[in-house]
Design a protein around this nucleic acid. Structure first.
Lengths: 331, 331
DNA sequence: TTGTACGCGTTATCAG
DNA sequence: CTGATAACGCGTACAA
């Protein structure tokens, strides 16, 4: 059977409580006994039983992460970064891909609750009222990381989607009188909604009517970008630039152009979002909005850990930096 | 405070054990009481405390997964698939990225042990003796999924790397007298080792000396593929085809060619491995070896769950299908 | 079919 | 500084 604290106590000739103290680095224990106990621990190869500890302390050292779409390389970078940060504080990550379905999200959260997660990260597409209500009532420390929550006081950290989209728009307005947009799913993605807002702002600022036919909808996949590009180009014969709301759709759009003998960027400039690794190696290499998944993960965990530990933190809504990177796919 | 079985018992006017029986779907309970109890559970919104249950049963409903390099989209597909399968049986996944470092792997396994994982999936680069010994001694049901273990009787599931590489080689020998290879890290990746074996087999079969200068080393990243292609092309002026051991390196290689005005596939054919989503949308689209990350995940969990449940399973070493897909990047 | 009582391995409280 | 002892919430013999 597994060796327990009891065995260690016996071996070291001390009481259970002393062993516990040593393990938890209490200073209420003399150096000598501590050494003695540590020796016993090593000799018996004793391992903490986290289940028992969790039962007793109500601390599971588990953090739940809900994402919408693990096929997104950018999200994976975030997921990796979160794990890296978590492990430093001895937390493990459990995750679930909701595919953007509320039902799935609720299901996962419920499951996570049973596992007594200490914290929750929500990187889902949509912040529905029901989801937010459920999370609030659960009382689990939570960080949102797809967009900002205006209607709520829950902490969030993301890139400044509005500003970033404005930057892209500004750039594209320098190329032509209008540009096409490949956005994310309608009414279903905060990130997409926010980026759209940035586009709308710039169109207004430039006094250009944002016609419906300038906008096409994708679902953040290569394929949808390919299709959306076709629609956009068919509808707007003179279109000369496209802003896709993520890199995959942008690459899909490029592919459509190439398949149809449309030169990128000579005839059409294409700009993406995220700057996934593949963007640099696309052909032509992809102009895009850089944001650091690693930084995002670090910031998420930073806030979450403060919440968990009850530490005060000033900024509830944090932006990570972004940067418009012009490569070969745009003039 | 959280509601416990005790509260439910009180509310339903039954004993603790009865509640427990209802929760665990024991048939040692009358229909009427079961209904009564379920009603109380609902009314109180009772949630199982998995920590307590885990302590009692020694079953955590947690499965640990160790991967080497989460930046690999193919691995992510597997990770997602594993989770999807796991959740069906009420397991959650905890994961760690070892970056191929033994020390990290041991660290994670140790941590996972403390969390009392019910099973372990190892998708690391190298199966070192130390790692295998450690895992064996841990007695945790384990499945390996990067390559096959000749020296051990632990279950594994992967694509048939040797055969797949032979297929690619056969194809490339139909194009020219020899081809270049961008392999994975030397002595450090089973998958790479196995694919290399396939190449070696074919070179032998064709009676072509496999010169050292035909082989260049990468580390499965875009960048390393780019660099490796340069080396290969510099060393072999007349080279006309390259087999890269994964898609990222292949795309990196394509990029190098394009940057240097080498036409793909007219001057050089390039073939990758994995068939990640981006392969289809690369430009030119990438010829590659298709394997299903989803299927891999399903098979991994299939075997692992059998191990966990003590069910007999016949095949210890399972191959998932592969398929050579010729797209635009090769003649 | 139901209830009682014990123990899983820890941590926390209290007394010494 | 150290040691007894009582929880934490659940599952399971055993008894009824």
């Amino acid at each position: 059977m597994n060796t327990t604290m009891k065995d260690v106590a016996k071996k070291a000739n001390v009481s259970l409580s002393t062993v516990s103290r040593v393990i938890n680095n209490s200073n209420l224990v003399s150096k000598d006994t501590a050494i003695k106990v540590r020796k016993a621990i090593k000799e018996l190869d004793y391992q903490i039983n986290e289940s028992a500890r969790a039962l007793r302390t109500n601390i599971s050292k588990l953090i739940g992460v809900i994402v919408a779409g693990m096929d997104n390389p950018f999200l994976m970078k975030v997921l990796k970064s979160i794990e890296t940060e978590a492990i430093k504080e001895n937390y493990n990550i459990i995750y679930g891909d909701s595919e953007g379905e509320l039902e799935q999200e609720l299901y996962y959260i419920n499951m996570f609750q049973q596992k007594k997660i200490d914290g929750l990260v929500v990187m889902t597409a949509k912040f529905s009222d029901e989801l937010i209500k459920y999370i609030k009532e659960s009382n689990i420390p939570t960080v949102f990381a797809s967009g900002h929550l205006k209607q709520s006081d829950l902490p969030s950290v993301t890139v400044n989607n509005v500003k970033a989209a404005e930057d892209v728009s500004e750039y594209l307005f320098g190329l032509d009188d209008y540009f096409g947009i490949i956005r994310g799913p309608y009414r279903d993605s905060v990130a997409s909604e926010e980026r759209m807002q940035g586009v709308i702002n710039k169109y207004k600022e430039k006094n250009v009517p944002l016609k419906k036919k300038y906008i096409s909808e994708g679902d953040f996949t290569f394929k949808s970008g390919y299709k959306a590009a076709k629609i956009l180009i068919d509808k707007n014969k003179d279109i000369s630039s496209i802003f896709a709301f993520n890199d995959q759709m942008a690459v899909g759009a490029i592919k459509y152009c190439i398949d149809n003998n449309i030169k990128v960027p000579d005839q059409i400039s294409i700009i993406g979002f995220d700057d996934i690794e593949a963007a640099k190696y696309a052909n032509p290499s992809l102009s895009t909005v850089y944001q650091s998944g690693t930084k995002l993960g670090i910031e998420i965990m930073n806030i979450l850990l403060k919440e968990i530990n009850g530490t005060q933190f000033t900024k509830k809504n944090v932006f990570i930096p972004h940067d418009l990177i012009i490569r070969e796919s745009s003039k």
